[in-house]
């Protein structure tokens, strides 16, 4: 009946509806545009930045913003602040997004398996996760990064480990909620195996909430990464990273306070944009059926 199939009235799918609702939320949309702008800035940093972020000159150290040729001034080694901030977006966004994505894959897998299996599997997996939960996240990140040694890769691993437990918890609780619904029973009754049921019936209902939760962690991850860099446990100088820049500039806090605040301002803008975007996405997905 091919000609008949073409006539079928198709309702817009869930994600289409979410997208439309998201577009109607001005705050979320503005935040999303800022995030997009930051990502573009990070990707095209070498082409946008007016100067070499590594090239310093002791003659022009700690110039205030507005100096001729250096619109945002220069840092303690005389490097152009604007260029360093633009390049810093690369590492800061990377350290914000990548650990959360890694933790999303691992944590969601753990949580969905635990939630769907229930019983002993659930207890075993979630109690293991709870052990990590017992430590404050900052402390855990610092301890892990300290144990693994400084460096970007180790910082990344530390942050991923920090975010797996909360994501697994959320994944487990939404999956447990979906698992007991009748449509999962009906799928079992039709003879489908666990993997197929998870793929076709569970994922579509749990990925949204898990993803939104993970998005809200991006800002946290960025700030934690900045904190690690600040403590000397993350990115090593002379890499331009917002957290590291805060650290190295702090000696100039009393002479050039505005200059010292700039990396912090960037962190603030990025994290608030991510948070507002996540809030918008959350309310867009909250569709009353």
């Amino acid at each position: 009946m091919p000609e008949r199939v073409n006539e079928i009235i198709r309702s817009p799918g869930f994600w289409v509806t979410v997208w439309r609702r998201f577009l109607r939320d001005p705050v979320a949309l503005a935040a999303a545009l800022v995030v997009l702008g930051l990502i573009l800035m990070a990707v095209f940093a070498p082409w946008i930045a007016p100067q070499d972020p590594f090239q310093g000159m002791s003659l022009r150290r700690l110039k205030p913003p507005g100096t001729e040729g250096y619109p945002l001034g220069t840092d303690e080694l005389g490097r152009d602040m604007l260029s360093r901030l633009i390049h810093g977006a690369r590492i800061s966004l990377f350290m914000g997004i990548v650990p959360v994505l890694c933790a999303l894959f691992i944590g969601a897998a753990i949580g969905i398996v635990a939630g769907y299996s229930g019983g002993w599997t659930n207890t075993l997996l979630m109690r293991t996760v709870d052990v990590f939960f017992a430590f404050p996240s900052v402390l855990l990140a610092v301890a892990l990064a300290g144990a693994l040694g400084p460096g970007m890769t180790n910082g990344l691993i530390a942050l991923t480990l920090v975010f797996i437990p909360p994501i697994a918890r959320v994944a487990e609780s939404v999956t447990t909620g979906v698992r007991s619904r009748d449509f999962v029973e009906a799928a079992k009754a039709s003879g489908a195996g666990a993997l197929l049921i998870i793929r076709k019936h569970v994922l579509g209902n749990v990925l949204g909430p898990i993803f939104v939760y993970a998005m809200s962690l991006v800002a946290v991850s960025m700030i934690l990464a900045a904190g690690l860099s600040f403590l000397g446990l993350g990115v090593k100088p002379p890499q331009p990273d917002w957290g590291l820049m805060l650290n190295t500039l702090r000696t100039a806090m009393y002479t050039q306070p505005l200059l010292c605040a700039l990396p912090g301002v960037m962190i603030f803008i990025t994290s608030i944009s991510f948070n507002l975007m996540t809030d918008g996405l959350r309310s867009a997905m909250d569709i009353k059926a």
């Binding site: 619904r181 009748d182 449509f183 029973e185 039709s190 003879g191 489908a192 579509g204 209902n205």
Partner: peptide
């Protein structure tokens, strides 16, 4: 096969009617 009391909870809200019904035979 089983038909449940709660007609809403027994259908996956993310699937169309067609996908819900065709799932069993495809399994």
């Amino acid at each position: 096969q089983l038909v449940f009391q709660d007609s809403y909870a027994s259908l996956n809200p993310r699937l169309t009617v067609e996908e819900s019904i065709a799932f069993g035979p495809m399994v």
